[in-house]
Design a protein around this nucleic acid. Structure first.
Lengths: 226, 226
DNA sequence: CCTTGCTTTATTGTATACAATTAAACGGAG
DNA sequence: CTCCGTTTAATTGTATACAATAAAGCAAGG
């Protein structure tokens, strides 16, 4: 993925998530092309993808703007994710292979390594967490489900959530993964589904709690009291 | 929507669904551009959208092919649709407005008109059916959910399903819609969810039954016994 | 005869020019 | 002063040329 359209995608996404661009800001193709150092063609592809990701909205006249991300929107996304990823866990339990099971255990051990030190390695946690959830999707074996979820999992939200975790929250996440693996070992789809749904919902509340007090929308810069 | 990219999208989609293109056929941009009478740029956008729709797959080297649509794939899609649209029905029941309720009743009446004659008007049925489901999504009020479902509802599959309906199946569909409206009137989310999930699953089995005996994949032309 | 590496060909990726469309600026009439 | 239509500027849509890359064909060596 060293193509210009991918770099443009990452660049624009980064600008949105870092707060360099705020909700509602217009995204003009030519301006972005200059900033990203590419032509408009890859910019258009990137914007199309970001629109699918719901980080960008388009008016009826095809102008693009940075999407608004209210807490309600995030709640909406998390609820859908809980449902779909719960379903994925159920399917995964029914279709689990020994190979993937081993990989899952390895993955959760790596998560443990990352968080069980005085100074938790949040990035390592995120990497292995992502890998673990990807393994569940792989075991579920539904391309459509994978597609839907990747469009739904806003990695930035996960990032923000994890960076507000306290040691106990990390431990909780690891413990839930362990339960999930137990459910997989026993091929207990209903259990796996319940654990996963709870796992996602817990993450949402962690996000919502961390979000409390922030009066501004996600990605918006602080402006101080008027 | 009179843009070249939309026309290209419809044209390619049509070619795939009509069987003019078979599963696994390569889709070369230039060839499609000539067939559609447009340049490669809108063709690329159309292919990207068709890929989201899962009518087209791309190899790691970015070549596009007509996707394979096995019965398992369709079952997968219907299951996800049952879950998501069931969820939508639950939300819709909780957030239903009188205005939408009136529109729903009108819509289901129109469906009744279309099917309760000697020669059912299948196209009118499909139009009003689509409208009814769109109204449910509107009442549910989740942009994300709407996005996910539109990517999931392969209208062609619905089309094929409806065109194999017998009078009793039409009546059944209409009756389930009526029940759904009752659930909405009573703001009974759980009931609405159950009805909708059953409604979609019934549609799947109608599709599967009609599909029996077709040894070829969807969209593939009959070739006769070897 | 099979393999391996190179050459050729086909296909996709990107840049850019131009056309079409839409929003903004402006000006005149009421 | 406001409203409406016209003109102007800005922005997106499309076509096309060229660059980059991957597949296919081919030839030489094992």
């Amino acid at each position: 993925m060293t193509k210009a359209s991918d770099r443009a995608y990452e660049a624009i996404r980064g600008m949105i998530l870092s707060g360099e661009l705020s909700s509602g800001d217009p995204l003009r193709e030519e301006a972005l092309a200059q900033v990203c150092g590419v032509s408009r063609t890859p910019i258009r592809e990137a914007l199309k993808q970001l629109e699918v990701d719901m980080l960008v909205t388009r008016t009826e006249s095809q102008r693009s703007y940075v999407a608004d991300w209210s807490l309600d929107d995030v709640a909406d996304a998390f609820e859908l994710r809980a449902m779909l990823e719960g379903h994925a866990a159920k399917l995964a339990a029914e279709r689990m292979t020994d190979e993937i099971l081993i990989a899952l255990r390895y993955c959760n051990n790596a998560i443990y390594e990352a968080i069980s030190k005085p100074d938790p390695d949040v990035n390592a946690f995120l990497d292995h967490n992502r890998e673990l959830h990807a393994l569940v999707l792989k075991a579920a074996g539904s391309r459509r489900l994978t597609n839907l979820l990747t469009a739904l999992i806003e990695q930035p939200v996960v990032w923000r959530t994890a960076h507000h975790y306290d040691p106990k929250a990390f431990e909780c996440s690891h413990s839930e993964h362990a339960d999930l693996i137990s459910a997989f070992e026993r091929r207990d789809g209903a259990w796996a589904e319940a654990i996963m749904a709870g796992h996602i919902r817990r993450a949402f509340h962690a996000y919502a709690d961390a979000h409390k007090g922030m009066t501004k929308g996600v990605g918006e810069t602080e402006r101080g009291a008027a």
